[in-house]
Design a protein around this nucleic acid. Sequence first.
DNA 1: TAAATTAATATCGGTTTTCGATAACGAAAA
DNA 2: TTTTCGTTATCGAAAACCGATATTAATTTA
Lengths: 103, 103
Amino acid sequence: MDNQTFRDFFLGFIKIHILYHAAKEPIYGQEFANELNRHGYKISFGTLYPIFHRLEQKGLLIAENKNVKGKVRKYYFITEKGNEILTEARLKAKDLVDELFEN
Amino acid sequence: MDNQTFRDFFLGFIKIHILYHAAKEPIYGQEFANELNRHGYKISFGTLYPIFHRLEQKGLLIAENKNVKGKVRKYYFITEKGNEILTEARLKAKDLVDELFEN
DNA sequence: TAAATTAATATCGGTTTTCGATAACGAAAA
DNA sequence: TTTTCGTTATCGAAAACCGATATTAATTTA
């Protein structure tokens, strides 16, 4: 599967994963990108950062700057609304994937 | 979850489902849209048809016109390459969704 | 204390995708 | 020959994507 097809199919999954990870513990861009890389998924910062911004605008995440070893990180926390959306998205995602394995 | 968020998260899933359904039996636009509706998912024809076109351009689907009761339908069949991509996508999708339920 | 380094976020501009609305198609029916 | 009807195609504006480049801010080095 070429990269373009991969992103076309899976960028939505990655957005749900952002909520999922932010629900477990605050995340920031570089770290999240690194974790994606570790799993073999690549995403440009020009794509990733605007996604964070939009999730924040929609009220699903909240950002908080934190200074770590002299570098400013923008940590994202999930909101209550974000958690509700995550719960809903998780179930829908499961249904859709389960259906792919029927037959 | 508002419609825009839904599409943002799930349009990729729907693309995989197009391959999945085309692998089971030939599908055409209206019917596929109807089935999505039945499951509560909405997608505009201005979005759906170009998706079919791109999947065809990439060699994952092949189209064939068929005349049914005087109406021309464009049936899409999956190709061998499409089947390979589907198999790969299905596994990746499962992994990603399984991870959403860890913890 | 000025310059360079570093980890990180932000944004730019060109391209692609999305999408509601509207147009076009083609066979059958009127 | 016009109308109807199920269906596909396309339009134009908005949004998203993305690789590249710029910016930020504290620390280290000179």
